[in-house]
Design a protein around this nucleic acid. Structure first.
Lengths: 255, 255
DNA sequence: CTATATTGTATCACTTTGATACAATAATAA
DNA sequence: TTATTATTGTATCAAAGTGATACAATATAG
């Protein structure tokens, strides 16, 4: 991180120039992938965002699709590059393709501040259609690294997002809406938790995703009735109250 | 329809050649739109398909995205071109982007039979990522027209599909699955019906989409409890039994 | 005028859900 | 050691929703 900051605008400019010159030979034109990475800590649902170069704007982790690369593989590759994680739960949920999304935003403006109006900037002048995925990760395992384009990474509360580029605020809204459905229908929640958890922690997760409170006893009854939780031993929490059970998600065929 | 058949292979070949020459200047490269058009007749859920040129294969109505055209607008334009309808319920549900989808299929082979391996054939040699929409239409209003690429249009029972090109069988499956969710959650069903309908007709629609039977009395109770149906006068059906009520869907704010 | 097919409504048992009560217990405070 | 505190696990009751069945109503066919 330090050396990139010291490298400063010049290194960044050179990096962008090099990227733009090589990109057209490697990637599909006009197509990108954006990922909404959800995590869960401090009882809050978080989204992982990158600061775009040295602007005040944040951006979803994204990238381009190689000419002979499957869409899902591209999304996975981009996620792995950003988070260092190998096994990631991924779900395609939307493809954003309004022409205004590239124009009305600050992206180009900010880029031009950095690199000037050089003729090789036309990779980013393109109109892009972006295929969007959401990812669920156990955030305790993330090892993100900054790089030339993205000088800072940060988890944001899904309700307290920073200034975002393009239509990324809309995309996050759609991702959340889809996550809410999937949480109930496909029980994807465990991807956001560590291997074992208490019923209280699980309830906090559901409350963070659905953005509303549940009655504790009914929530417990409901989730136990789904037969997807395996009850383990009691947890020694060190808290001044009855120790809760630990649970683990089990997929239908696992038993 | 007649003149195109008489025009035969030569007219087709010229048409395709002309399309391929002009396409790169008009459309985004490597991107297409496919639409799964659902209709409902004879108590069956139907899908509208086009015969690809003079091959034995059928294909989803699709097209390309103009360089400065919004994705949704492209889908709507393509639908209007195929069906002649103006107001169409459209829902984006999936983007298909495996590299194999273009390769493993018969499309290229069939095309080459028609046009040979001309150098200008490379528009269709591209790898395509396809943004998929489903549409719900009152099929009594469709006025489709054949054209140079598509020599026949036909409604197919969703359970009795013909040979399909690319991964269009998979796309139809995904569309159906999404329609099933949306039917309950967003009550999109009325887009498949005429303005007024009986409870029996509505039940047939739900049974066709969900591919299972419902108990008549419970279905009626359930749908009436949603408060989205306005009861009109009795229908004079000419059938030898009690005349059923007619209903109309009303959106929440309409009243 | 009767038979037939189908519709509209009611009802009963059963399940699910919302709300509340209460006993159990791990750590802490006295 | 014992009482207190916070939270957990389980039970229970009423209300709402669902599956299954019964039955009266009625538009046409014969």
């Amino acid at each position: 991180m330090g050396n990139q900051n010291e490298g400063g605008a010049k290194g960044l400019k050179e990096g962008i120039r090099e990227f733009m010159e090589t990109a057209p030979a490697i990637y599909m034109p006009g197509l990108s992938v954006d990922t909404v990475i959800f995590g869960f800590h401090n009882d809050k649902l978080k989204v992982f965002l990158l600061r775009f170069a040295n602007t005040p704007y944040f951006i979803l982790p994204g990238g381009f699709i190689k000419k002979e690369e499957n869409l899902d593989d591209a999304a996975l590759r981009i996620l792995q590059e950003r988070t260092g994680l190998q096994d990631i739960y991924l779900e395609q949920f939307y493809t954003s393709g309004n022409t205004s999304r590239s124009k009305e935003t600050v992206a180009k403006e900010e880029l031009q501040k950095i690199i000037g109006k050089a003729q090789w900037s036309n990779w980013f002048d393109q109109r892009f259609v972006s295929v969007c995925y959401y990812a669920l990760i156990d955030d305790t395992k993330v090892k993100p690294e900054t790089e030339i384009f993205f000088t800072e990474f940060k988890w944001f509360d899904v309700n307290k997002l920073p200034k975002l580029m393009y239509d990324h605020d809309l995309i996050i809204k759609k991702a959340l809406s889809r996550l809410q459905s999937d949480l109930d229908e496909k029980l994807v929640g465990f991807n956001l938790m560590s291997e074992t958890f208490t019923m209280g922690q699980l309830q906090k997760l559901y409350e963070a995703v659905h953005q509303k409170k549940f009655v504790r006893t009914n929530f417990q009854r409901k989730l136990l009735s789904l037969n997807v939780l395996e009850r383990l031993e009691k947890q020694y929490t060190g808290k001044a109250h009855k120790a809760p059970f630990l649970y683990r998600f089990v997929t239908g065929e696992n038993e």
